[in-house]
């Protein structure tokens, strides 16, 4: 029943600004805390369940020779296809390569931080571009009508398809590979920001816009004192989507960027040398997943701080 208390603010938005904003009155605050705690608890339960499922499936496969009632298992259960949970976690604290003292977990975190930096730069650049576009669209509806369908189209262009080209452009321009990767991250990040920011800029009710007119506020004052603050909750909803997209963009960009670093590159390498240590690939994918999640959670904290004085909208 808890979810129903949130009014459907923007029913057509997939990530409306409603979800995380239950704070405010003490009862709502307590409810929010309780729901966050139970999310954490369920999250832990899900993790344990997944690990148990993994190990159970593996054990069953090992016992029956990957066959049950004459049917082959969809995924083989030997250590090469499915390294045990213990082996994956254990790999994190073992040396990354023979002959080095760096342990894999540290190495992966280092590479992930490279990816995270590319994603963060991409997010900033993409968000600024996205916000600027939204402001232009707000003030020039004909431009919006002409350009918007093409922006939608630009997002249906599979970015992997363009990634090699962007990397080539970056290379010919003499830029280090991470610049091209950042560009790809920004390309994926700007769109959700544009859409949500535009919706937010248009969100102030008539009373507020007419009040600003009644005090003879200029265009700039209307934008900075009314429309932008009003757009903030929407902007954060867009930024959350953009953050995920920028991490995906950074990883995909790294795949195409020949000599670069980053967790995407590590995954590619470990996939290539899979038979040497399958658990390493799983460990890398795990770190990549955690990286993406942490990135978005940081944004959530930022949002909670920025909107701390607001109740629900």
């Amino acid at each position: 029943m808890t979810a129903m208390k949130n009014p459907p603010l923007a029913p057509t938005s997939s990530e409306g600004p409603s979800v995380t904003r239950a704070a405010g009155r003490t009862s709502a605050k307590a409810a929010a805390l309780r729901s966050r705690l139970s999310t954490g608890a369920i999250g832990a339960v899900v993790l344990v369940l997944l690990a148990a499922l993994w190990e159970g499936y593996k054990a069953l496969g090992q016992a029956t020779g990957d066959r049950l009632l004459g049917l082959r298992f969809p995924v083989a259960t030997d250590d090469l296809s499915m390294p045990g949970v213990g082996a994956i976690l254990g790999a994190l604290v073992e040396p990354a390569r023979r002959g080095t003292s760096t342990i894999l977990g540290v190495y992966l975190l280092e590479e992930a931080s490279v990816t995270l930096r590319e994603a963060a730069y991409g997010l900033v650049a993409g968000s600024l571009l996205g916000l600027a576009l939204a402001i232009v669209f707000l003030h020039l509806p004909p431009v919006s009508r002409g350009l918007m369908p093409w922006l939608v189209a630009s997002q249906t262009v599979p970015l992997v398809a363009i990634a090699p080209m962007v990397v080539i452009w970056g290379g010919k321009a003499g830029l280090p590979p991470w610049v091209a990767v950042t560009g790809i991250a920004a390309y994926l990040a700007f769109f959700p920001v544009t859409i949500n920011a535009l919706r937010g800029l248009k969100s102030p009710p008539k009373v507020q816009t007419e009040f600003m007119r009644s005090v003879a506020a200029g265009r700039r004052q209307l934008l900075f004192w009314l429309r932008l603050p009003a757009a903030l909750p929407y902007l954060f909803a867009g930024l959350r989507l953009a953050a995920t997209a920028s991490v995906v963009g950074a990883i995909v960009g790294e795949l195409s960027a020949g000599t670069g670093r980053g967790i995407g590159r590590v995954i590619l390498t470990f996939a290539y040398y899979y038979s040497n240590g399958p658990e390493k690939l799983y460990a890398a994918v795990l770190v990549a997943a955690v990286t993406g999640i942490v990135f978005v959670q940081v944004l959530n904290l930022l949002e909670r701080f920025a909107l701390r004085n607001r109740h629900t909208r």
Partner: peptide
């Protein structure tokens, strides 16, 4: 100065 039916205060 103008007062509307809704207060229309800026919530931030």
């Amino acid at each position: 100065g103008m007062v509307f039916q809704q207060a229309g205060l800026f919530e931030w």
